[in-house]
Design a protein around this nucleic acid. Structure first.
Lengths: 217, 217
DNA sequence: CAATTGTTTTTGGTATACCAAATTTCCATT
DNA sequence: AATGGAAATTTGGTATACCAAAAACAATTG
């Protein structure tokens, strides 16, 4: 009953999917015993998996209480996006300095794939490519800590951004902005890239705020 | 054998101290069994404590091997500092917008304490106040995620910055810079604060690089 | 009927037992 | 003496057992 990858991480991945896709709704409790039994594993790795997700901010631990799926408020999501924006801007700046031609080629490839998916694929596919695009920029910074921390925020904000991305209204603007970012990176114009990334995320914040407003109806 | 605070966290705190103060040198392995027995606890909380420190970057987990105390290279430390700098700059900017008068008073109090400690106390005390000062700025941003992520980097870089702070040569410049930061915050001049914080950390990077050079001798 | 207290149940925290992979040791063979 | 490999040991991963605190529930009492 084991593999090359620790069981706890596989459980964490599984739980993460359930949370992000919504089959584990925000606010519901995750009982060690029940969930472990349900997946046919013992409490020990389940416990560790929960801790992993807690560090990522997807579940919150309460002393002497069941952990629950995080239900972030608009303020918390906005705060997360603000940090993530700073991380991405830094990524962009560093990428202008450190990106190899291969890095740039990969980023451009993802951008083309994005244009393609926008025309033919569904919104989930498009979203996946979008995430890959931003992750590729972080990787191109050649700063491992930055890429890791950025990745943690991507995970935490996955669900929110997924919902935000389903707002098709300004998909065109979004695509255009990504194009600008690619252009800036290739020209290694750090200031321009920083401006575009900042603007891009500000739009995401706006969309998310709208989503929260609608939810109250 | 339990308290209000989970045992794992207390163990993590204890291990963290040992690592940061150097009694657990970089590179040495942390065996679950041995360390647990040494502290008179079982493997379960020890295991969890190790995972906590791994997430913080203080120990590294190797598949099917003992975890070891992290021995970051100059490149890794510089990368960490680069991210931390961005986080602090963002903190400063947001603090200019969101800090309450109480926040500012607390920051100024810490600054005065710093001046006082520089005159009378030892370098460890001074360092502690320094860390508190930067943490207070992050807190004044009123962005919880930012404060938490920043705090994680503070912990990871604790030892390095501690060593860096023992370089007394530019203690005066450092103190003056902190004063400028306080001045900027009170004037709520985000641009000025960002500039000063950035400059401050660039000096830290320089000091750390010197330290790494010396170590090779 | 409400309130309070005592009991049962649920739940997370901790300890221990067991297993398999990986390392090390050491002997047999050349 | 060198080497190949098998057995023993070490170590982390997983399962299970036990405990205490907290919550839920029930019963008793005013």
């Amino acid at each position: 009953m084991e593999q090359s990858q620790p069981l706890a991480e596989r459980i964490a991945n599984q739980l993460r999917r359930h949370i992000l896709l919504g089959s584990l709704a925000p606010g519901v409790s995750i009982k060690e015993r029940d969930n472990a039994e349900e997946l046919g594993v013992s409490r020990t790795p389940m416990r560790e998996a929960i801790r992993i997700l807690a560090k990522e901010g997807l579940v919150v631990l309460r002393p002497a209480r069941s952990p629950i799926v995080a239900a972030p408020s608009l303020k918390e999501v906005s705060d997360d996006l603000e940090v993530m924006s700073a991380l991405e801007v830094l990524s962009g700046r560093l990428a202008c300095k450190n990106a190899t031609p291969e890095d740039l080629a990969e980023i451009e490839r993802l951008y083309q794939k994005m244009l393609d998916t926008a025309r033919n694929g569904d919104s989930v596919d498009l979203f996946e490519v979008d995430m890959d695009f931003h992750r590729a920029i972080a990787a191109a910074s050649h700063n491992k800590s930055l890429a890791e921390t950025h990745s943690a925020y991507v995970a935490r904000l996955w669900r929110t951004r997924y919902l935000s991305a389903s707002i098709k209204s300004d998909r065109d603007r979004s695509l255009r902005q990504h194009g600008e970012i690619v252009r800036g990176l290739k020209a290694r114009d750090a200031r321009f890239v920083a401006k575009e990334i900042g603007s891009h995320i500000r739009h995401v914040v706006t969309n998310v705020a709208d989503l929260f407003d609608e939810r109250e109806a």
